[in-house]
Computed example of a mutant assay.
Amino acid sequence: MNTENRYPVTASLFMLKEIKHRQEQVNRGYQLLKRKAEALRIRGRQAASELASTQAILGHILREAYISLAAIKFTNGESNALVLENIGQAQIRVQRISENISGVSTISLQALEETGVCDSMRYAGLGAGGHRTTEAKKAFREAVRTLVKFASLRNTCILLDESIRSTLRKVNGIEKVIMPKLRNTETYIMMEMDEREREEFHRLKMVKAKKVKSQARAFLRQTVSAGGGGETGEADEAEPGAPPRHHSVECLTSILACSSLTTTTTDSGDFKPVCYPHNWDDDDLLF
């Protein structure tokens, strides 16, 4: 397996448990990020629709405010110098309100009108055009409130857009990079552990075959030596019911001559000897 598509880990049971634990954590974080991105999208659509409607209203309000200002100039002449001379405290202030949207900190602006502040231009237009002056004041107050709302919505849309892009990058990174690497790492560990198990199984079979072969050779030597002693008259009588000695010798000779104690592979990939000694018991097996 390509090492670039997996993490460099050692194939062990502990590492397999660790990779599975990481997969659970990554899946949990992936689901949370997807929910966060969806919530930010919904809030972003709401803010965008409010921003579009506020922008349309703002254009109409500003147009009416400047029309009323033009009417004052036509009635009373230039009054810029008078306004600049009578500037005092602001009657409309902007309040910053912190807001948390699915883990994203945003700041909304709210216009607050202070009624207790003295209006230095409350007597403007008493001689002529007082009605026009009052209408212009109201129009520009409404324009300031709308501008503050527009600025707040625009700031919220910008922050939400950046947060959505960052969250989607994280989601795509987890989905396209981290999760495939974890799956490939788990597959690699499983393959390596299965391969080690097959090698250990084959090693045990070879050890058992070698042990049986050495026992058969030792028994054959004893049998041959015992047979030679019988010819000189020193061999004991055969026990009743025991198989003939020449049959045992032939069987052991066939075991030693059998080249099938070497292993072959089957279709399933397991190693199996072609032939086994006929006198094997379950207690003799090491595996």
Rank of each mutant, 00 (worst) to 15 (best):
V207P: 01
K170S: 08
M191K: 05
L182Y: 04
K34Q: 11
R96V: 08
I164D: 00
T54V: 11
S120D: 12
V117T: 07
K208E: 13
R96K: 11
S260P: 02
Q31L: 10
A48Q: 12
T167F: 02
N2R: 12
N155S: 10
R93Y: 12
V274L: 08
A238T: 02
R141C: 04
K17P: 05
Q91I: 12
L204I: 13
I189H: 04
G241V: 03
S98G: 04
S120T: 12
A238E: 15
A136D: 14
S254L: 03
A216Y: 02
R6L: 07
R169A: 14
K34V: 09
G125A: 01
S49Y: 10
Q23P: 11
Q31M: 04
L33C: 06
D283H: 15
T75E: 09
V148G: 01
I57T: 14
L112E: 01
M121C: 05
D270N: 08
W280K: 15
C275F: 04
T10M: 12
V224S: 03
E99H: 06
K149W: 03
D119E: 03
A238M: 11
P180H: 04
P273R: 06
G88W: 04
I255Q: 01
D161E: 03
H278W: 08
R183V: 04
I92D: 01
N80P: 00
E4R: 14
T266E: 15
R217F: 03
E200R: 03
V224R: 12
L168R: 07
L147C: 00
E186S: 03
I174W: 00
H278T: 12
C251A: 14
S12T: 14
E99K: 07
R221C: 09
R145G: 01
H246L: 14
L69H: 03
G44L: 06
A65D: 02
G173A: 06
F271R: 05
T253A: 03
S68Q: 06
G103D: 10
P180F: 06
A216R: 15
T75C: 06
T263A: 04
A11Y: 05
D267N: 04
I92S: 02
C118R: 11
E64V: 05
I42Y: 13
L160H: 01
E142M: 10
E38M: 03
Q25L: 09
K272Q: 13
A56D: 12
T223H: 09
V212I: 13
T156F: 01
D283T: 12
R43H: 15
A143F: 01
K137N: 12
R145P: 01
T264V: 11
F150T: 13
I255P: 00
M121Y: 06
R41W: 05
R132I: 06
A216V: 12
A238L: 10
H202K: 12
D282I: 15
R183I: 05
K36V: 14
A242L: 07
V212P: 00
I189C: 05
A143W: 00
K73T: 13
A128T: 10
I164V: 03
T167A: 07
R45W: 02
F150C: 11
A81S: 06
N5H: 05
T223E: 10
E142V: 13
P243M: 14
L40P: 01
E24K: 15
D270C: 00
P277N: 07
E113G: 05
L261E: 00
N172A: 09
E186Q: 08
R28F: 05
